[in-house]
């Protein structure tokens, strides 16, 4: 009964976060953008920003479609909404990955410059972010496998309930993220991981800014764009993890609310519920960060270039 309004409130929070991000970014843009940049850098960054906004819009549409489908098709038992975070994130990132960036032309007589450092999909991701992503992905997969293993069939034989029973009693609760939900969710997570890799690869293989002296600018837009992709993936993963943990925790709590079930089981359910809420809040934070960084990409890159230039001048390197 409470799930609908709670999800609506959650969606409202995300929308509010995006609006706030847009207002903050609009104020931050203004005169400071690209004081230290160049025309080619400006073109590259504005294109990346445009493609991120289109991708974010597409992600929001898929999320909404998952929500509407769940309401329109009660027989699907919430499965469209369950897979929506990963599928929507994957769809948005895939759209970013397949949208070609503009190729900045070079005059025939201009000297062309290229770095001899190979660029890979993970070249611009910090070690901390990479570790965080891996931990989140593994945690979500482990939780799904655990809920799958501990699930039991509901009245219709679908693996979406949890049951505690011995000779004296039997207590069961549903919906629980058993194999009925876990298998599609694991497939959706693989899709999200592949889409993230393709989006990061798109950033890495985009031709470098032409001409000498643009190495720092070239790296700055790649690092800033990579941060947006990482934030979007973290937002999708935490949303997925939070949803699974909340439903698992709630079902365990309800099923364990029986004198025959050890108290520790109820505590596990409560702990999962709290972790789930924390993950859902974190997803709002990361989605806001992603939106802030996407909308403010030109400003971020200009600031990064300016900072690097200052460091370069100070150290003489």
């Amino acid at each position: 009964m409470m799930a609908g309004p709670a999800l609506m409130a959650y969606a409202g929070l995300i929308v509010l976060a995006v609006v706030v991000a847009w207002l903050v970014a609009r104020r931050a843009r203004g005169a400071r953008a690209f004081r230290h940049g160049s025309e080619v850098l400006s073109t590259a960054v504005r294109s990346a920003k445009r493609r991120f906004i289109v991708a974010a819009g597409f992600t929001a549409v898929i999320l909404l479609a998952g929500f509407v489908t769940t309401i329109a098709l009660p027989s699907a038992l919430g499965l469209p909404l369950a897979v929506a975070p990963s599928v929507a994130g994957a769809a948005g990132l895939l759209l970013y990955a397949i949208t070609p960036p503009p190729v900045s032309s070079v005059a025939e007589r201009d000297v062309r410059v290229a770095s001899l450092a190979p660029r890979r999909a993970w070249s611009f991701v910090s070690r901390r972010a990479l570790t965080g992503l891996a931990v989140l992905l593994v945690a979500t997969c482990v939780l799904l496998i655990l809920t799958g293993i501990t699930s039991s069939p509901d009245d219709a034989g679908r693996s979406r309930a949890i049951t505690f029973a011995d000779d004296a009693f039997m207590s069961s609760a549903t919906p629980y993220p058993g194999w009925f939900y876990a298998v599609p969710l694991l497939v959706a997570l693989v899709c999200l991981a592949v889409a993230a890799l393709l989006a990061l690869r798109r950033i890495a293989i985009t031709p470098s800014l032409p001409g000498p002296g643009l190495e720092r600018q070239d790296r700055a837009w790649r690092v800033a764009s990579t941060r947006v992709v990482v934030d979007l993936v973290v937002a999708s993963l935490t949303l997925q993890l939070g949803g699974v943990a909340v439903f698992a925790g709630n079902a365990i709590h309800n099923a364990a609310f029986n004198p025959g079930v050890p108290l520790v089981t109820q505590m596990v359910g409560d702990a999962l519920f709290i972790i789930g809420i924390a993950a859902l809040v974190a997803s709002v934070v990361w989605f806001t960060l992603a939106a802030l960084r996407a909308f403010g990409l030109p400003h971020t890159v200009a600031s990064d270039v300016a900072t690097q230039s200052t460091t370069h001048e100070a150290t003489g390197r």
Binding site: E108, R109, V111, R112, L116, P212, E215
Partner: peptide, 8 residues
Amino acid sequence: MITLDLSD
């Protein structure tokens, strides 16, 4: 870094 001059 590597440079390429097509007028060369």
